[in-house]
Nucleic acid binder design. Structure first.
Lengths: 148, 148
DNA sequence: CCGATATATTTCCGAACGCAAGCATTTAGC
DNA sequence: GCTAAATGCTTGCGTTCGGAAATATATCGG
């Protein structure tokens, strides 16, 4: 007898692998971004001053701080991200979203939206998609600021 | 106005990152397995002869064939997996689950089940967990043999 | 003010992955 | 039966990631 919670977790992991496979390629070739790059920039998009500290980003993305450092480096060189210091705390190195970055993530979002619709194209009603989004939202609710 | 399907996809990706972070550490330190190692062995567990070809495993895990080759190598040396040839097709190199492997993945599954329950510990009813599992099952239904 | 602790960031190192290329074998067309 | 295409698997290379250590700054207790 298999536990329902275990079943849900396994299926979520499998579903993610499937989605990543479907999205990664086009996102990279068209916009030059990885899936995680996009999530990072989307977090910045909705941040108060279009900026977040690196540890804050790490928590939101569930990755290590070193990963954030390495992820932002090339995006900064491409002019999509910037770096800003805090007046009161010299340790902080905010990651900022530049105008270029806003345009790029906006375009990437359109690709993601289109491919998201494809995922549910057949055999899914609007109510079912919303039910899934709601349930998943409860999982991520424990995390710092929910996305979208 | 954000699309519901896009919202669901983003939340699924975020939720997976959260779960991987919560599960990975204990799974590795206690059983010496990664999350993907466990999924691989669980696929073998439910396979007809406790064996699957490498490309089949790759499709089920949504990873490249080369990844399967590299994943199985250390597990084979540890005696958890074996290698079996096909009588009719000399290209095939089945990955088999040994007795040792069955015991290890059985123990790892218990850890996964326990931690899965923790995820839904508070604020989740049995019906809601089942609803989530069902909806996620429809996402992975398009894939070769569903797990669990 | 001073030392101890905590926090933010970066760098180094090893592990894991995808892709392209290569090899072996099987299948299909003729 | 023979060549060409397809399939299964592995290897080399570049990329990405987490953890530990190092550095810099901030905070707390006295």
């Amino acid at each position: 007898m298999t536990q329902t919670s275990f079943l849900a977790v396994i299926r979520l992991l499998s579903a993610q692998a499937l989605l990543e496979q479907k999205f990664s390629q086009e996102l990279g070739s068209v916009h030059g971004l990885s899936l995680n790059d996009s999530l990072l920039m989307m977090h910045l998009e909705q941040a108060p001053l279009l900026r977040l500290s690196r540890v804050d980003l790490a928590k939101r993305l569930c990755v290590s701080p070193s990963t954030v450092t390495r992820m932002t480096l090339p995006l900064e060189k491409l002019g999509m991200l910037g770096r800003e210091a805090d007046v009161r705390d010299a340790r902080l190195a905010y990651v900022t979203l530049t105008d270029t970055g806003r345009k790029v993530i906006g375009a990437a979002r359109q690709t993601l939206e289109r491919k998201s619709k494809e995922v549910f194209k057949d055999r899914w009603s609007a109510d079912e998609i919303e039910a899934l989004a709601d349930l998943l939202g409860r999982l991520t609710a424990s995390q710092p600021n929910d996305l979208v």
